[in-house]
Design a binder for these strands. Structure first.
Lengths: 277, 277
DNA sequence: TTATGTTCTTCTCATATCGAGATGAACTCA
DNA sequence: TGAGTTCATCTCGATATGAGAAGAACATAA
């Protein structure tokens, strides 16, 4: 059910005044993740004004409400997330570098008091991107950067450890922690790790994605066997990388993402066993 | 990031007028699932007024915005979901029959035009309940009932098959389909199937929950072995059911939910193999 | 050029898990 | 009392996983 059903529609439209209601703002925030230098990074912007001036925050902003009463400038939630991401990174949304970005809804955060100014409901999204250029501080942000996730001192409970220099505004530490946990889980049973790679990648590169997101080293041989044995995870390009590993070794073969949408059997992280309870 | 940061807070509070913004309404909807007579049921209410008068809908309603500007009647999203559930079922929220209900956020639906009256952002929740009494049509609803999910003719794409008598309002077929898929997945890797049972249950009863949600029969012997081998899934009460099966058989033993929060290894549904691509 | 160490890729082997079927005892219902 | 059902456990083959090993290809430094 949605708004007051005790009027028929014509009557509703005639008598309805949005100013009768308590105001609620709806925003989208984006947890955009990428891999740089083998480490997991998140896109953050630095706030130039109060509240939380000088602190870092997830990119985001208002959803354009529009709607049948106010014209056709209404915007769907995923579109708003892509727009915010494009504005903050300075990258073109369609066809450009953001074309191969995976985007999904993460969750909605609406506790009273999470924004000191008014009631704000934020629909958080999660994005997996291949390596992108440094963002340009456009729009509202004083600064924007890819920040190593490890540098934020996040705890499982969604807070930042005391002494962490880069503080996160609002409840964005909680949102980011939820996004990281979602990402870790998604890598287990979907082939989305390939979204962190370019169009072509090697199995060792794919393994480094898993290691960066999960924060633990994997057995190279078993990982290799697993990736090739799951149907539709990757498909061979027939080509070979033009260089060996950083410090030696043969040239690895090149693959691209397969057509599977789920990994079966899943690729479970080793540490999971201890976290069960 | 959230609202306009180009003012400091005091200035913002003085100059801010919510009437400057396009109006957005935020609602919560609840996909409440239970098992009745071995079949999966969902709680629905029948709409008495336009739009979608006479059609069925998920229980739900406005979030009480409140907030620092308007007093302390602000309401968190899960609280709003519990309140709507209590209002529609006529059951007491705390301590009562709703006490053991599992509730989690499902997703947020905000496409322009999903409500013909205005822009409505709906935060959908998913609830797993043990068998509850029939709801009383209270509040805004003309009627309320537990409806067998199979009777709604839902397709994977979130629509209702032509010819289905009970039509769902708004995009609630889509939301319900998403909720069902979430429920099916949750049963694989969490012990939440126990939330559909009472405090004590037998392993055959637990199996019938899986069969109702997944819509397929399971191998009784393997299911039994699996449930007992996963640490923390169930724990024995030492007691035995006072009656055998419906049509014979020995008296099954009684168990209660264990302390595990994740099933490891997971209990994967057999049909999954075909759906992968 | 040579030597050294690294990395990719494939194997082996022991262990764990799963699907399918079978069995005996306990129970309901006709 | 007899027939059929169900609970609970077991067996067996197939599959998946973790750990280690090994050869070949490569980068780098001497």
């Amino acid at each position: 059910m949605t708004p007051d059903p005790r009027r028929d529609e014509a009557e509703f439209l005639a008598s309805y005044d949005p100013r009768d209601y308590d105001p609620v703002a709806v925003t989208v925030d984006v947890v955009a993740l990428t891999i740089r230098d083998g480490a997991l990074h998140v896109l953050l912007v630095r706030r130039g004004f109060a509240p939380y001036a000088g602190m870092w925050a997830l990119p985001g902003g208002f959803v354009q409400a529009g709607g049948p009463l106010r014209g056709a400038d209404a915007e769907d939630l995923p579109d708003a997330a892509v727009r915010e991401l494009a504005e903050e990174t300075g990258l073109s949304a369609k066809g450009g570098a953001l074309g191969r970005v995976h985007l999904e809804q993460l969750g909605t955060y609406g506790s009273p008091g999470r924004d000191p100014r008014m009631r704000v409901i934020s629909v958080a999204h999660l994005a997996f991107a291949p390596e992108l250029p440094d963002p340009q501080a456009g729009g509202d942000a004083a600064d924007a950067a890819w920040v190593p996730v490890d540098a934020l001192g996040l705890t499982d409970s969604g807070e930042q450890r005391p002494g962490t220099t880069r503080r996160l505004a609002f409840d964005h530490a909680r949102i980011l922690a939820d996004g990281l946990e979602r990402a870790r889980g998604k890598l287990e049973y979907t082939p989305l790790a390939t979204a962190f790679c370019g169009g072509e990648f090697t199995i060792p590169e794919l393994r480094s994605v898993y290691e960066a997101v999960w924060g633990e080293e994997l057995h190279a041989g078993n990982f290799h066997r697993k990736v090739l044995s799951v149907p539709g995870f990757v498909e061979s390009t027939g080509a070979t990388s033009d260089r060996g590993g950083r410090r030696g070794g043969p040239r690895p073969r090149l693959y691209r993402a397969g057509d599977a949408r789920l990994l079966h059997p899943a690729l479970l992280r080793p540490s999971r066993e201890e976290e069960i309870r």
